[in-house]
Every structure is written in structure tokens, then in C-alpha cells.
Computed example of a mutant assay.
Amino acid sequence: MPEADVMPSLTVPQTLSGSGKPLSVTRLRKTYGGVTAVDEVSMEIAAGEFVTFLGSSGSGKTTTLMMIAGFCEPDSGSIVVGGRDVTRLAPQRRGLGFVFQQYLLFPHMTVWENVAFPLQLRGVPKAELRRRVGETLEMAGLSAMARRRPRELSGGQQQRVALCRALVYRPPVILMDEPLGALDKKLRDQLQTEIKRIQQELGLTVIYVTHDQEEALVLSDRIAVMRDGSIDQFDTPQELFERPRTPFVADFLGAANFLPGQVEQQASGHTLVRLDSGGLLKARPQAASEGTRVRAAVQPGRLALCPPDEGFCTGTVETVTYVGTLVRITVRPEGSADVGPVRLELPAGRSPVVGERIGLTADPDNVSVFPDVLPDAKDGG
């Protein structure tokens, strides 16, 4: 029976380090019939950077990754890796590493043989092959399992074998297509830590695809939030979360509350919004004239409690849900029947009770203002 995963301490041999190369994608486009899957996507990825394509099903993230890998030919655009144009090269000639959600290990081969296979295909001399495979398995804590076959390993161990197989021939870029999607949450969290540590210590350039917002925030140096084949925002996790540039990004990454109102005043250092519920909400500066209809966006975790009739909103608690370290609360604002409930998250502990009248407040620096248009509907796939 496969053993439970115990994550090893990571020791990276010096000979494995520094293999990353920059990658450039310019106006990449792909259509299927009359449907545009990827629409003029461009980005520059630095050597040693961990970039994630984040989006729901149909956003274009996997198609973009497949074009970079060479498994899907673009209609137009270019892909350059380390200064070399690989746009029209076959996948095996690009030299990129690929890790799938399905491990795709050879069941009749041992762990050692699975990891050695890419080197055998490349005609690496036996002595060099043994050294590289040994170092790579040691790095991943798999040396003791070298003679086992995939069926004798746990899911996490199999995924680490797949990662080793992608690393062993020192690819300039590693591409990962939802590699942890089939694992349970605890193991996913552990492997996220190991993948990030390996990437940093080896100086790898990694492009990672996921629809899991938390995973993207944990792993990435930068995230490309994709929608309808285009990139809505390409930025650091902190900028995306704290400074979303579109309602879609604010909703997709932060599950923001969108509070309707109009700009009442442009003051030094902030925009003052008169909400439809009657309250006044200070937000980050926004280039909008007074009287403009807007929606103020604030994430549930950025709201705080205050006494009733203070802050920007007073309302009645409708639900209180305990979720471990957090309590999720919905509040029905007073002042307008057309305004939906406001969601907030508080640390577990003392929390208001259903039916209690409370006030809400927020730091202006945590409030974004957008034109009065709701973000597009999305799925969670």
C-alpha cells in the first residue's frame, strides 16, 4: 500500500541551480471555428520568475499554456524562450518541462526509470544520467523509493516523481497544468510549499495554470488573471488583491462586495462616495466627476465592526457561519431595500449574533471605485 506523504527537508545540489530563462509571448491568438480562445495575449516573463495563469473554465489559460508548450499551434503571434523563437517548433524541440494534472508515469517502470527516461531519449551518457537522476531524486526526497513502481506510491509521491522527470534534463522553463488538482487540500498545501521552494532554490522559470485563487496567491511572483481569452490584469499577488484594476479582478480574486452609489466629493487623497444605503464611504482616489454613478468594491476581510449609526453602513446581522479560523457574516444594510447584503469576514472569537444591529467601517485604502457596471458572471471551473 502507498505510504502517507511526509514532506522531506529539501537539499538542492549546486549543479542543479540557475536553469531559468526568460520567456516572451507576443500577440498570441488562437481560434476554434468562430470562437476566439486566446485573443492577442502578450507578456514578458523574467528568468527565475513564477507566473500563474489564473481564470475560470474557458478563460484561455490552458490554451495559452498549450501554445507555449507546442501542443497547440497559434493562429498568429510569437513565443520566444531565452532569445530563441520556438513558435513553430515541435514540443520535443523546445526543450521545455511539462507537469500535468495526470501524472502520466509509465506503470511498468520504476521511479528511477521514469525519471531517467527523458535523459535516455536525449542520449545522455550513462555516468551523467546516473548522477542527474540521483541528485534529482535526492532533492525531492525520493531516493529511498527509486526501485518502486508508480502503483506503490501515494498520489503526492507520484506527483513528485512527475516533477522530477520534468526537472532532470534542466529545461529552461517548466510548464505546469493544474498539477495539484487531483490531490486533497492538506497534500496540496504541502506540495505548494515544496514546488515554490524547488523553484526558488533552482532559479527555475515556471508557468503554472490553476483556477484556485488561493493557490495562485501562495505560489506566484506574478499572476495573469484571464477572462474570455485576454488578460484582465498581470501583476503581483499583492497588487491584484489590494489594487484590482477591473471589477472582474476584484470579484474573482477577492470576492468583493460591490456597493452602489455616486461620487459626492473629490477630496485630497480620497474619493467620497454616497452609497444608495445612505452612508458615506471614503475610497482610494478615483478619476470620476462628482455625481457619477459608481460601485465601491471592498473585500469581506477588509471590513470591520463599529457601533451602529457610525461608519459607512448600519445594518442587521442575517447569518453567522463559523469556518474554523474565520467567521463569515452577512449584514442587511438599512436605508435601501434595493441594496443586497454585505459580506464580511472576522477572526474567530467574539462575533455578532443573528438579529444584532451593527455598524461597518473600512480603511479608505482598501476600497476601490469602479464605474457602475457589475463584473461578468463566472464559474468556478
Rank of each mutant, 00 (worst) to 15 (best):
V86R: 02
E194D: 09
L217K: 04
L129K: 07
G315M: 06
D338E: 13
V12N: 05
L360D: 00
F312Q: 04
G340P: 03
P285T: 05
A283N: 06
G279I: 06
S368C: 11
T271I: 00
L28S: 07
E178A: 08
V35I: 13
Q299F: 10
G95R: 01
V298T: 07
G301S: 13
F234P: 05
A127Q: 15
L326R: 12
S220L: 15
L163D: 01
A116S: 03
M66D: 07
V249F: 06
V41T: 08
A162K: 02
E334R: 09
E334Q: 15
V133C: 01
T15N: 13
C306S: 13
C313T: 04
E152W: 08
T210C: 05
P341T: 04
P371N: 05
R94H: 04
G355Q: 12
A47H: 06
L129G: 03
V81A: 02
L104V: 14
R160Q: 03
D221K: 02
I68L: 05
R302C: 15
P347V: 11
Q190D: 13
P172G: 05
L65D: 08
P244F: 02
H270C: 12
P2F: 02
T136M: 15
K30P: 02
S230R: 15
H270K: 12
S78R: 14
P172S: 07
E345F: 08
R343I: 11
V6F: 13
S154C: 12
T26E: 14
T193N: 02
P172T: 02
M66K: 14
G156Y: 07
N366A: 13
E345C: 13
P347R: 10
L54P: 05
F71I: 10
E290C: 12
F312R: 03
V6A: 14
P237V: 04
G20M: 06
S57H: 02
V81Y: 01
G33Q: 06
V38R: 02
E215D: 11
H270A: 14
Q233I: 03
E3M: 15
S289F: 00
T36S: 14
A4P: 12
P300I: 03
V294W: 04
P244E: 01
G20T: 06
G203C: 10
T52R: 01
R332T: 10
V218Y: 09
G70L: 00
S368Q: 09
L360F: 02
V86L: 07
A4F: 10
G156S: 12
I198L: 15
F248D: 08
S76P: 05
